[in-house]
Amino acid sequence: MNATFNNRDPVYLQVVRYFKEQIANGNLVAGQEIPSRRELAATMKINPNTAQKAYKEMEEQDLITTERNYPSKITKNENILQSVREELIITAVESFLQSIRPINVPIDELLRIVQEKYSKESSKEGL
């Protein structure tokens, strides 16, 4: 649980975002237990009320399920998990497009550069 937060977006939404990333990259899987609100607050160094709010938000988005007296778990609904991944990809691509569009690069050239850079970065991280 290592996340850095910016100061201008609500912290609870940044926590939700962090969980979504962990779901998208496979670190968190269907049905997996997640830390208690207290544990999350302590490891992420955030206010326990914020952790509580983040979990409530994730429950409302059906990302996690909580039964009384049991730790919360990542949903087992594969459709939801799949759509989390898609959502993150689409948002990232859209923000990329927004910044690249004014430069007016031909799509072939753009794709070639993306491919080169992407595989270089990935091999640097040892993926």
Partner: peptide, 12 residues
């Protein structure tokens, strides 16, 4: 949190 959510402003 309300300040961040509604106005996008940090405490500073």
């Amino acid at each position: 949190e309300q300040m961040r959510q509604e106005e996008g402003k940090s405490v500073v």
